[in-house]
Amino acid sequence: MKKVIFGISFLVILVGIMIGNIATDKKEEEAGPNLYDVTGDTSVSGGMIAPVESVGIQPGEAAPDFSLETLDGEVVSLSELKGGKVILNFWATWCPPCREEMPEIQKFYDAHQDDIKIIAVNFNEKDEKVIDFLDEFGYTFPSPLDREGSVGKEYGVLTLPTTYFINSDGVIQEPRHVGPMDYEFMEKMLDTLN
């Protein structure tokens, strides 16, 4: 008798869980995708609540200097690029939006490498993985490695890709861009930067 009561109780609980899941799924379908942009950043689709320290460097602030090594052993120092315009991009091989923007960055780099420097900082990955990725797709723009993630942390990078636009005075001129960039957007930034 106890087994029968236990079995019936178990079935009632399972049916209750199923009904609850169906009701939750129906509510989510009615609500649609993320309806509220809580970031305040109009360039971001979706939204999230993030700690204050992830706001990053703001327009008008000096871009923090760093020196990072590329895969071929060259050291890239932001301070050495002062006097020229810079697009500073943080990315990773595992990041789908990063993969989406990489061909656009290469196309832009090929067309404008004399007008603006592109520094695509790989964020916290192993060298071999980055080498394989860059070689596979033939990306040739400078891609130094932020092996410990310290530069990304200093820039408040929480989401990848994140891009900063630095003018010839070494100052962040435009709000950071979170998410993939396309060729036209990069051209607009080139024309906007002093």
Rank of each mutant, 00 (worst) to 15 (best):
S45N: 13
G46S: 08
G47V: 06
M48C: 10
I49Q: 12
I49D: 09
P51H: 04
E53S: 12
V55Q: 14
V55A: 15
V55G: 06
G56W: 04
G56V: 05
G56R: 06
I57M: 09
Q58P: 05
Q58H: 03
Q58E: 12
G60N: 09
E61Y: 08
E61D: 14
A62P: 02
A62Q: 14
A62N: 14
P64K: 07
P64T: 05
P64I: 06
P64R: 11
F66Y: 11
S67E: 15
D72T: 13
G73H: 10
G73L: 11
E74S: 12
V75Q: 15
L81N: 04
L81W: 05
L81E: 11
K82T: 13
K82V: 13
G83F: 09
G83P: 09
G84H: 14
K85C: 04
K85L: 08
K85W: 01
V86R: 06
I87R: 02
I87T: 05
L88E: 08
N89G: 11
N89D: 13
W91E: 04
W94A: 02
W94G: 01
W94I: 01
C98L: 09
R99T: 06
R99A: 11
E100A: 14
E101C: 05
M102W: 03
P103V: 10
P103F: 10
Q106H: 08
Q106W: 07
K107G: 00
K107Q: 15
D110C: 00
H112E: 02
Q113W: 07
D114E: 15
K117R: 13
A120G: 13
D127S: 14
K129G: 00
K129T: 14
I131T: 14
L134I: 12
L134N: 10
D135R: 13
D135P: 00
G138V: 08
G138S: 08
Y139D: 00
F141Y: 15
F141K: 08
S143N: 14
P144L: 07
P144A: 10
P144T: 11
E148G: 06
G149D: 04
S150Q: 13
V151T: 12
V151G: 02
G152R: 01
G156P: 01
G156A: 03
V157R: 05
V157I: 11
V157W: 03
L158Y: 14
L160P: 06
P161W: 06
F165Y: 13
I166C: 08
G170D: 11
G170A: 00
V171S: 01
V171K: 11
I172H: 03
R176P: 00
H177Q: 13
V178Q: 07
G179H: 04
M181Q: 13
Y183F: 15
M186V: 08
K188W: 12
